[in-house]
Every structure is written in structure tokens, then in C-alpha cells.
């Protein structure tokens, strides 16, 4: 284990705990301070003042998936780019050019998606 590893991640876990406690504290304060008078009308979802119809959550437009996929590709690329940033100046020339080729392939993919109209919001 590298030095300071535990101290660092304990701080992160503590931050999650402290943040959770603070937020739950706000909710608890709300619970005690706020009035509670429930009525069937309050529990109706908002829909411009009319009775809402049934909600069908399974219908999602395909365009969201297209952008989700594209994001995944570039996000994974970023994971590869991070270690490269701090080593390429100290490594063999191949390391630098390899990453340029890698970025080039991905940009070609972006250009292809653009040409195919995948970047258009329809």
C-alpha cells in the first residue's frame, strides 16, 4: 500500500458519512418543523392542473441511448488518456504517436457518427 493511502481514502469515506449525516439532519429538521396534512389531491403528480394520465416509464426515445453509447466510448478513452499524460514525455517516441493514433481513430469515429447523423437531435 502506498504511503498515505489509508489516510486519503478514510477522509473520502468520512466525507460521505458527514455529508450523509448533514443531509439527513436537514430532512429530520424538515420532518419535525413542517406540517403534515396529507390529502389525496396533494399526492397527485403535477400535470398543468389536469388529472394526470397513467405514466409509462418504459418508453424512452432511442436518441438517449445513442448519446449514452457515444459518451461511454469517450469516457473509456479518458481512462486510457490519464496515465499517458504524465509519462509520455519520459517514454519512447512510440508512446506519444500511439496515443495520437488512438485519438485519431476515436475522432474518426466521431466524424463517422456526425456524417451518419447520429449527432443530430431528432
Amino acid at each position: 500500500m502506498p504511503e498515505g493511502y489509508d489516510a486519503r481514502w478514510i477522509a473520502v469515506v468520512l466525507a460521505a458519512g458527514v455529508g450523509l449525516l448533514a443531509v439527513l439532519g436537514l430532512f429530520a429538521a424538515n420532518l419535525f418543523l413542517a406540517p403534515r396534512r396529507s390529502s389525496p389531491d396533494k399526492a397527485v403528480a403535477y400535470e398543468s392542473g389536469i388529472r394526470p394520465g397513467p405514466i409509462n416509464r418504459s418508453q424512452v426515445n432511442i436518441r438517449y441511448y445513442v448519446f449514452g453509447l457515444l459518451f461511454l466510448i469517450f469516457d473509456v478513452e479518458a481512462v486510457f488518456l490519464f496515465p499517458w499524460t504524465v509519462v509520455f514525455l519520459r517514454s519512447a517516441p512510440a508512446v506519444f504517436y500511439e496515443m495520437l493514433i488512438f485519438i485519431g481513430i476515436l475522432l474518426f469515429g466521431l466524424a463517422y457518427a456526425w456524417r451518419k447523423g447520429a449527432l443530430r437531435w431528432r
Binding site: 429538521a29 424538515n30 396533494k42 399526492a43 403528480a45
Partner: peptide
């Protein structure tokens, strides 16, 4: 905001 009622839709 802390003294406002917390409402949850029935279907949520």
C-alpha cells in the same frame, strides 16, 4: 424551506 411540507406523489 425547512418548514414546508414534504409531499410525495402517490405513485412514486
Amino acid at each position: 424551506l425547512l418548514t414546508k411540507e414534504d409531499v410525495r406523489p402517490a405513485d412514486a
